[in-house]
Design a protein around this nucleic acid. Sequence first.
DNA 1: ATGGCGCTTCGCAAGCGA
Length: 256
Amino acid sequence: MKLVTWNVNSLNVRLSHLLRWLEENPVDVVCIQETKLTDDKFPLAALEAAGWHVAFSGQKTYNGVAILSRQPLADVVRNNPRYPDEQQRILAATIGDLRVVCAYVPNGQAVDSEKYVYKLGWMAALRDWLAEELARHPNLAVLGDYNVAPEDRDVHDPAVWEGEVHVSPRERAAFQALLDVGLTDSFRLFEQPEKSYSWWDYRMLRFQKNQGLRIDHILLSQPLVARCTACTIDRAPRKWPQPSDHTPVIATLAEA
DNA sequence: ATGGCGCTTCGCAAGCGA
């Protein structure tokens, strides 16, 4: 089965991209970030017509997350129960024998800004909650836009980015703390092309020059690591007209 | 050093993203 994470940067604008990509790519679970839609505006009918079970949690203008699944979703949880948050950034659901968490980690804006402090606190609370989720659900997959490039090889030019938001030592430590509860970055289980990224700035021809960051990740608990046979980034939709600045990341799991 | 682009909104400029 295939699990996907994709920050669509407005589901309103990108619905046609999403539907096209889903037609071209037979997958089972899709975690979406930055829907930027209140729940009353969510395109539920279009996605159900395409054969998806859907859970979503949105707000006006910013953030918003959704999970699409070929199988029914159960035990849907909005937000981190340990961290009251007006911003809609987390959705969890049980799908078959998997517990799936869709996460949109705060951007952080600039190191030491108010938003950066929020990001670090938010990630620490996520870690605490994921430790509990993992105890309840050994088959845990956490997919999302983490807004952290874990290592220098995930950054097109580490010298330019040194100390900046997305790569700062405290953000990388907060990301490592997520792994330390018992999760693994599935992308690095496998040989990967050099200069693999999942986001490129719209400006300055960053995509054409492949000057990006790898900030969208699929983290797997140990039993799922044992089942994981591939993790890839699909750059194709970034080349379509009016693309999201992020591109899908796909993990493949063998049946238990 | 700056801005470049794109999306959003009680739009016509500004906040935010990354």
